[in-house]
């Protein structure tokens, strides 16, 4: 069983600059921030290293940080410009019984994160959900389609983004109350 600080030290020694920061003062578990385009390398190490053995991805969630600028677009609709979208990975080792949370943040306008589907199989649908709800693109995902919303839902319409606007009609059905 390893403490979060020790896990951070191991990662920092192995990967250096890819590991961005360590946030210990969270009400939940300590969070390690990682480069979005290198998360698959770090994940593979976390799973296969004998000292860590993170064999279980408990949850993968997308988050809209909404830390950009609030502006009005050409039609006077409030949108958020800049800032980041994040993905959180909650890992657990069923062998060594320790946990850690990873975080990657990608720019909102071009949110691209490497997929961890070939490391933890369960990430498949979680990543599809994060794509469906927030529009985060997972590179090298085998089947990145919408999972909850209809396949023919509006492109660039992601319901859990903070500046999401409900469309008036879908297939001739009025959506607002």
């Amino acid at each position: 069983m390893k403490k979060a600080e020790e896990i951070f030290e191991i990662l920092k020694n192995e990967f250096g600059d890819i590991i961005l920061s360590f946030d210990k003062d969270t009400p939940t578990e300590p969070i390690i921030s990682i480069e979005p385009l290198k998360i698959h390398i770090v994940s593979k190490f976390l799973r296969d290293n004998a000292e860590l053995q993170f064999d279980s991805l408990m949850c993968l969630s997308g988050v809209d940080d909404a830390n950009g600028k609030k502006v009005k677009d050409a039609d006077g609709i409030d949108i958020i410009e800049g800032g980041t979208l994040s993905v959180y990975y909650h890992l657990y080792s069923t062998v060594l019984r320790h946990k850690i949370t990873l975080k990657v943040s990608a720019p909102r306008e071009d949110a691209k994160v490497e997929s961890v589907e070939n490391i933890w199989k369960c990430a498949d649908w979680h990543e599809r959900e994060a794509y469906d709800m927030l529009g985060i693109i997972f590179l090298n995902h085998p089947d990145l389609r919408r999972i909850l919303m209809p396949y023919d839902w509006f492109e660039d319409s992601f319901p859990l983004r903070k500046d999401f606007k409900v469309p008036e009609f879908y297939q001739g059905m009025k959506i607002p109350y």
Binding site: L148, P159, F164, V166, M173, K174, I175, Y177
Partner: peptide, 20 residues
């Protein structure tokens, strides 16, 4: 009948089956 608890924020809910 009318969308129930999803009437305001239910982006995925039809607000009453009598619309179709």
């Amino acid at each position: 009948n009318c969308g129930g608890p999803y009437w305001e924020h239910g982006y995925h809910v039809l607000k009453g089956v009598d619309r179709i």
